[in-house]
């Protein structure tokens, strides 16, 4: 964890962080058994602004890119059923690569920084979004598609007007899992010097000073909850027919 490479990657933030905290101006940070130092938190809350924005950017970009790619793959596999198993396997394999390994494997190709982070995080979202989109499309009752075709909707109209709207719940469910897990995994991009809230968690000093970890973790969790809530709201607003009481 604290290999020289990692420290070098996190160096800019971590080193600075360590220095600041080693001064004697803060009363409770010297006590290693002190779980949360409120005074320090009050004085240092500003330092979370930039990492939070970075974190948000990385998450949003990753999920958007992941969604576009996964959706395109799902659409392809929906039209050509024979592609479904290989695509599921391919996205599954990506998902099983350990994240640290994935980051470092890409370093020679894409280098340190945000690009690598986004590529890896987007790749991780593929499996869940792809699988849920396929699932949602498959759950559309055959009778509904048969009726749509029999009434004269073209294949494209069936997809956009019938299948996709009906698949929204599954697609959004996939997105929710993807977003929450991406927000969590994005704390690791600090190791490839891509910023984010991980910068406030990792650093040698933090091992004996949990206050910053707690603050960063709280922001990460709040972010995950907020995104989840937003997506849930979007789903409810776009699927009014699911909220009616059946006969």
């Amino acid at each position: 964890m604290t290999s020289p490479l990692v420290l070098a990657a996190a160096g800019q933030v971590g080193g600075d962080f360590f220095k600041e905290r080693s001064s004697d101006t803060l009363p409770c940070q010297a006590q290693s058994d002190h779980l949360f130092c409120l005074d320090w938190a009050k004085d240092n809350i500003d330092r979370y602004g930039t990492p939070t924005v970075q974190h948000l950017e990385i998450v949003v970009l990753s999920v958007v890119i992941g969604f576009v790619v996964a959706f395109a793959l799902a659409w392809l596999a929906h039209r050509r059923r024979s592609l479904q198993p290989p695509l599921l396997a391919a996205t599954g394999v990506l998902y099983t690569i350990p994240s640290i390994a994935f980051f470092f494997l890409l370093l020679p190709l894409t280098g340190f920084g945000r690009d690598t982070a986004i590529i890896v995080l987007a790749a991780y979202t593929l499996q869940i979004i792809y699988r849920n989109t396929i699932l949602g499309l498959a759950n559309v009752p055959d009778a509904v598609k048969d009726a749509a075709r029999g009434m004269g909707l073209t294949e494209r109209q069936i997809l956009w007007r019938v299948e996709l709207p009906l698949a929204i719940p599954e697609i959004v469910a996939g997105l929710r899992v993807a977003v929450v897990s991406t927000i969590a995994i994005a704390t690791l991009v600090v190791f490839i010097n891509a910023g984010g809230l991980g910068t406030q968690m990792y650093g040698s000093g933090n091992l004996t000073f949990p206050t910053s970890i707690l603050i960063a973790a709280a922001i990460v969790m709040a972010m995950a909850l907020a995104f989840d809530l937003v997506l849930l709201t979007v789903q409810r607003l776009t699927t009014p027919w699911r909220r009616v009481r059946p006969a």
Binding site: P141, A143, A147, A148, G150, G152, V162, L166, T239
Partner: peptide, 15 residues
């Protein structure tokens, strides 16, 4: 579009 189509499972658009 010029031919009415009714099937056993109805197939109304749920949404």
């Amino acid at each position: 579009r010029e031919i009415g189509y009714v099937i056993q499972q109805v197939g109304l658009f749920p949404h």
